[in-house]
Design a protein around this nucleic acid. Structure first.
Lengths: 244, 244
DNA sequence: CATAGATGAATTGTATGCAAGACTAGAAAT
DNA sequence: ATTTCTAGTCTTGCATACAATTCATCTATG
């Protein structure tokens, strides 16, 4: 049937996005922005009231965010913003380092002029932010720079995974950037990463990206793992004061 | 995701799992078992009737599976079992190779006697399956072997990610195993991987795992990427929304 | 005084109903 | 005969109602 080809063309049509999808984005953004802090309860009723919808689409959004690991949905006990234990956080960063370095390795192998230009532009933006000492701006530009590298792997699936994890870690990454005042150091590392990718040196690019993400945290991670025989990855609150 | 024993028991107390969670597992199992083939429609009404529940928990299960990337949920157009394009499939396998090799690298660095024993046991089971020529059994044991390696990374987050992707690719992996009749070859590669991990040779372990997963597919992947200048964004495309 | 048990309030899980968008088939027109 | 328009059916999306379970508070008891 020739009609099928014709029908395909109707796919340019823009379908209305469901409310649940919009809500998912909104809630995710609110979490990333820090409006909901780790440990905070995501109450279905209040979220429904806040967004002017019923509980149903809220529930659907929360469950999806839970499936992505963005929040923690406990059966019959409601959803909370995940509170990863220190060990869990190291594990997440270590995973981020591995995935990022994989992207860098592939990018070094497959670099195209377009991807190169995108990374260059993002790098320039980072430079500008550092020059102006704008930490918030650097945070945003840094995100774009890393996304450009993920894309440069020319593996959109891997890039999606990388970016998803990047978003999940954004709150802690921001702390990391601020706490150590390592804007300039970060920028220099970026330059080294770019250099390695452009040289087509897969190993070097992977290593530099790995170290860039972990920031000397690797050995510390190993140490923690060595000490802690058993690991708890519970989201159980460390909210109230120290257990006495 | 890390759904194993999610709602089973937390802090001694056993909570009743929600229907939606059970349904999620059931539907996922059905997809993995090949009962629903890629492209098949997952109709809410018929699934509800099949499991004897209303549409609500079915919907919630489908949305969660969609968020995990296991199926493809299109707004207002229902859910289907994902039909990755060949390019997409290569990307998924390549990502699996990268994540698996990362697990192997960490396993080589941190191997404990317990993890070693677990891998050994799984390897023995694989040997037995090959000796008896039981392809189905090997498929199951192979899965356990790889899971043992993921766990041996001593990074439970990374291991969860790896296992989730492994499950997602199970249908195609089974084809891969059968089509090439490479049971024996696979077993020998397993032995080589174990050897490298035990020797603490991170690079070798990573490389062997990488090659084991990709099975000479790497160059082919590069070739496909090289030929296809632009990649189709199929219906099974990324869920990155309007991110530019 | 502390702890265990029970009762009421609050919150989540599921079912049902209705509205709106998407698919199908048929008729009209070129 | 092919395409376009249209009407009807089917499916999904959301709201509401109710059931089930968890949490908090209070009381009784050692």
């Amino acid at each position: 049937m020739f009609c099928q080809a014709y029908g395909m063309e109707m796919q340019d049509r823009v379908y209305t996005m469901s409310q649940a999808f919009r809500l998912k984005q909104s809630i995710e953004d609110a979490v990333i922005a820090g409006e909901f802090q780790p440990g905070d309860r995501l109450d279905e009723a209040s979220l429904a009231e806040r967004f002017g919808v019923s509980r149903t689409p809220i529930r659907e959004a929360l469950l999806q965010l839970g499936a992505e690991g963005f929040i923690d949905v406990r059966p019959r006990r409601g959803a909370i913003v995940s509170v990863p234990s220190p060990t869990r956080l190291f594990e997440m960063f270590e995973t981020m380092a591995e995935i990022a370095s994989a992207c860098g390795r592939l990018a070094a192998r497959r670099l195209t002029p377009e991807n190169d230009a995108a990374m260059e532009a993002a790098h320039r933006a980072c430079e500008m932010a550092v020059r102006e000492g704008d930490s918030e701006q650097y945070y945003a530009d840094n995100r774009n720079f890393h996304e450009a590298i993920y894309r440069a792997s020319r593996n959109s699936f891997l890039a999606d995974q990388a970016f998803a994890l990047h978003k999940r870690l954004s709150a802690y990454r921001r702390i990391q950037l601020r706490a150590r005042n390592r804007l300039l150091q970060s920028l220099q590392e970026h330059a080294g990463i770019l250099e390695a990718i452009r040289a087509g040196d897969e190993q070097l690019a992977a290593m530099r990206l790995h170290d860039h993400v972990l920031v000397q945290g690797e050995r510390f991670s190993d140490m923690v793992l060595g000490l802690a025989g058993d690991r708890r990855s519970d989201a159980a609150g460390s909210r109230s004061g120290t257990a006495k």
